[in-house]
Design a protein around this nucleic acid. Sequence first.
DNA 1: GCGCCTATTTTGTGTAGACTTTAATTTAAT
DNA 2: ATTAAATTAAAGTCTACACAAAATAGGCGC
Lengths: 234, 234
Amino acid sequence: MTQSSDTTSYKDIKQTVLRRIRSGDWPPDMLLPNEQELAVTFSCTRTTVNRALRELAEEGFLERRRKAGTRVLSAPQRQARFSIPLIRDEIEALGGTYRYALVSSEAQPAPDWLAARLALSAGQQVQHVRCMHYSTNTPFQYEDRWIVIDSVPQVAQADFSEIGPNDWLVQTVPFTNVELTFLASRADATVAGFLDLPEGEPVFTAERITWLQGQPVTFAKLYFGAGYRMTTQV
Amino acid sequence: MTQSSDTTSYKDIKQTVLRRIRSGDWPPDMLLPNEQELAVTFSCTRTTVNRALRELAEEGFLERRRKAGTRVLSAPQRQARFSIPLIRDEIEALGGTYRYALVSSEAQPAPDWLAARLALSAGQQVQHVRCMHYSTNTPFQYEDRWIVIDSVPQVAQADFSEIGPNDWLVQTVPFTNVELTFLASRADATVAGFLDLPEGEPVFTAERITWLQGQPVTFAKLYFGAGYRMTTQV
DNA sequence: GCGCCTATTTTGTGTAGACTTTAATTTAAT
DNA sequence: ATTAAATTAAAGTCTACACAAAATAGGCGC
């Protein structure tokens, strides 16, 4: 059998199933026919049905359990899946020219709050790097970053005057686990100065903790410039 | 052939490939062997290799192109995939008790900025619903929502005094397209009042536009209470 | 009735093989 | 040299079948 237009593809099945869900034909909580039956109705193999339903489940439309079958999810806990672009790409996509500037870089013992946050031992050495990212001379992001020296010893020799610590890290440490937090914070004098804002202004802020196989690698606090909006399609 | 422990599963392959990428064994931009070769080295079928590599590509580690082959992505633009929980679930997960209160609900012509945002015709009627979500009497979120009446005519009969507009919508218009935006805004007098904050305080804000098959359904502006943090693992 | 064990159903995943589609590459024609 | 057409290598997907694993449902003993 060929797979050209006379064949039912897993994409066709996905579309059809989605349409039935959306139209209310298959309402929330409904148990849908098992793969074998669907394979017959779609006149294809169970393998193909399986792929379609598996992907729909990954996308949050269905719930599948062995023996229990496949059912339509009632509360569509859709997962927003947005990519975290590199700053340079993001700025260039918005039509700006990316420029980077190092503010400071120094080794120091981890402050208490950082030690607590990353489960470091008291007084463990960290590299504290502060830098700016500009979009055509407009401040785009102020980055305040700490890198755990024990986890990335090479950081002692790193030169952050030309390359940003994030770029350096992704080249050096193929990172594994990341915890991302977004919040609205108030610009203190330092942040306001770098981002060219009035003090006290709301600032969209991201915190990013990175581990390499259980070892804390870096904590970054990223303050975005005025009017920043993070958008995603779901 | 069986698939028990003597067989190589697609998960094994994913792990092995990931390990090689992380260890630098397969550096960024490297072209990896084609599926047939990998199938031989892993002693499994090409089907199994295909699934492993396909998923790794979806997860952002590899780039695959027909004829060109599979290569390691240099800047692993990992995609944060975080689920958007229902407010009730989120509050209860944090140990609070969810409480809902309607502030106002009235039909009105769409204001210009909204008409522009949703591509409505001038003066199209919308239902403007404002409400509060509390976590054990602490303000958790102030919701300012507009629902396009032409897209959801049933909204005229809806009673939002007990059920929140979001819950009502997911029951009524199940699966839709969503554009989500996050930003930091400044609490104006209204928002400050509802969230029990000083005026001018930074507020983590989400904007949510929902379409049903190209038709605009609703625009919601969600103002989160003091200290709100949105966290996700990547 | 209650708890435990077994049987059965349904999804999960593998093998083997074929055809399709895309696109890089090479070849031929202008 | 440049463009257009043919070649071909790689991923993409389907068929057909088999066995595995999980979890519900039913039956058994108490």
